[in-house]
Structures are given as C-alpha cells and as structure tokens.
Design a protein around this nucleic acid. Structure first.
Lengths: 161, 161
DNA sequence: TTGGAAAGTCAACAAGGCTGACGTAAAATC
DNA sequence: GATTTTACGTCAGCCTTGTTGACTTTCCAA
C-alpha cells in the first residue's frame, strides 16, 4: 500500500469526480442565466445568443462553418438565423468567389445586442475570475480544454486569441 | 501607465473572458456527450440523468427538494419522474412523519443505470483531471463555484463531500 | 455537361422547458 | 373544529430547439 499516492490522487476519487460534475452543472446554470434574462425581453433564446456570439467572433463566416461550430443541423440553425436576418441583426451576403455560400455579418443592431449579452455574461465571469485569481483561472481553462472533444477543441483553437 | 498591473490582469481582458466563455460552451458539450449516447439507447434524456443523479446522491429526498436543486417546475419534473417510476428505476415512498411528502429512492435497476451514466461521465472528467493535474483541478473548482448563483451554491454545498 | 456540394425550405416530430387551473390529502394555524 | 397552507399529482396547451426526411435551386469543378 502506498498512502502517499492515495493522498496525491484525492481529486480522482468517485466523490471528488461527482463534486466536479455537480460543479459543472450548477455553474453552467449561472453562466447562462444573465444572457437568458436579456434574451427573453427580445423573444430570443440561447440558440440566438450562440449564433450572434460566433458570427461576431468570425465575421464573414459561412453557414457551413457555423454549423460545425454549433454542432446542430442546418434546419435548426436556419430557423434561428432566419429570424435574426428578418429582424435585421444579421446580414447574409452571397459569397463573391463561391456564390453558393452565404457569409454572415452582424448589423449595427446585431452588434449592439451581442455586446449587451456579452457584457452581462462577462460581468459574471469577470467576477468569478477576479475572486478565484489568475492561477485558478489557468487551471479552469486547462481542465475545460481537456474535457472537450477533439472536434470541439479544433473549433476552440480556431477562434482568434 | 502601469505595465505590471496590465500584465497581472491579462486574464480579465475582453479577449480572455471570451475565451473562457467559449471554453465553457465547448467543454459542456463534451461533458454531456457520453451520458447522452447511453440515455438515447434507453429512450431517456438529460432530464432523466439529472433526476437519477440527484436521487442517488440524496436517497430519500423529497420531490420539493429535488425541484429546488434542479430549478424546474413540478410539472416538468413530474413528467420525468413518472416515467422513471413507471419503468421501475425510481421508487416513490409516502413520507412517514409527513404523509404529503414523497421520498425518492433508486431501485436496483435505477442504481445500475445511474452507475453506468456516472461511469461514462466520470471517465471523461477523470481523464481531464488527470491531464490537467491537481492544481488545475483546484482552480477549476474554485472558478466554477464563484460562477454559481447564491441559490445554486447552497444546493452545491448541501450535497455530501 | 454532369455530379455533387451548399444552401434554403417544408413538414413532422420529440424532449423538455413553461403557465394556468384544478384536485386531493395532510399538516399547520387560527 | 374550521380554515388555510403545503406537497404533490395531473390535465391542457404553449414555446424553443433539437431531430429526420424529402425536395429544390444554385453553381463549382471534374
């Protein structure tokens, strides 16, 4: 028996894993709650937020690229995208080189709502980061990245910074 | 200008906050994907997983307590709970002291499915924890806890170590 | 020139949230 | 003892957001 190695691996016990899993569950609820409240006032949902976020992050992205990032069907994305285009928050431009493609951009009102949602969400994350400190934040990022699928990790790294 | 403090607060810039937010989004997808695949085979969804998880964690918990933890309406929970009871995974016992209450327990088959789901989810979390190391895990937990609502933090701490 | 990729659309369906209303039993309170 | 509150269940209906399948149009590229 090696008491030392048992001590070192405390964070891998069933109990600790369960607590980590529960932490993800409860934290994710807080994570989405502030934007959710704003979206409700606009008659939008989380799917609209995600679309606005990633279009803002990669202006000119194609629908197909967005599908890969969001991991939903085109029918599902199209419904969300259509309402955003109809409401004048997103502009869909036919591709120059390849006219089958649609390139997506936020309009000024789209940018404005995205900013509002990001502010709300960032306020909570900023507070959490500040409270936890830089080393905790580094650990947080490290664990989250290790938790991603290979596919999602690719998308994650393809986004700037 | 203070270059030093700018350096120290790098993790609070807009870019870093956005990356933290995106990390949560992509990681949460990985986090739920393994149990989701198992649930599908049983004709269940994430809501069933959550119910099984928390009933397992607090055997004998009341419906009302579970409602608080899950943060959904009783109609929504009831639909899920009914199917689990009908399928013989959860047992609902009338309270001894207060007969209005229903106390919830996993049956052997309920325990078995919960174990299977937990194994799948824990495998990924364990691998992520192992890769990231104990200090990263501590930071991960610290940030997640700071991200929770007061209400959720209360629920989180009420669950046994 | 033709095959296939990209995009859009229609229809139908399911999970899982929600509100509102109603009923029942039991506990708590007046 | 009568009334009110609590805990739970249930019916009905609605919404968002995911799914599959089928079909069309456009248009690049082999």
């Amino acid at each position: 028996m090696d008491g030392h190695s048992g001590e070192k691996l405390l964070y891998l016990t069933d109990e600790q894993l369960r607590k980590g899993i529960e932490a993800m569950f409860f934290a994710y609820r807080g994570f989405t709650s502030d934007p959710d409240r704003i979206l409700e006032k606009y008659g939008y949902g989380r799917a609209h937020h995600r679309a606005l976020h990633f279009v803002n992050r990669s202006p000119g992205t194609t629908v197909n690229n967005l599908l890969g990032i969001l991991g939903v069907t085109k029918q599902s994305l199209n419904r969300v995208l259509r309402s955003l285009v109809d409401d004048g928050l997103v502009e869909s431009r036919v591709g120059q080189r390849d006219k089958r493609e649609r390139h997506l951009y936020l309009t000024p009102s789209g940018t404005s709502l995205e900013r509002k949602l990001a502010d709300a969400q960032q306020a909570r994350v900023r507070a959490a980061f500040r409270d936890a400190g830089p080393e905790a934040v580094a650990g947080f990022r490290k664990v989250l990245e290790a938790m991603m699928d290979a596919e999602n990790k690719k998308h994650f790294h393809s986004l700037k910074e």
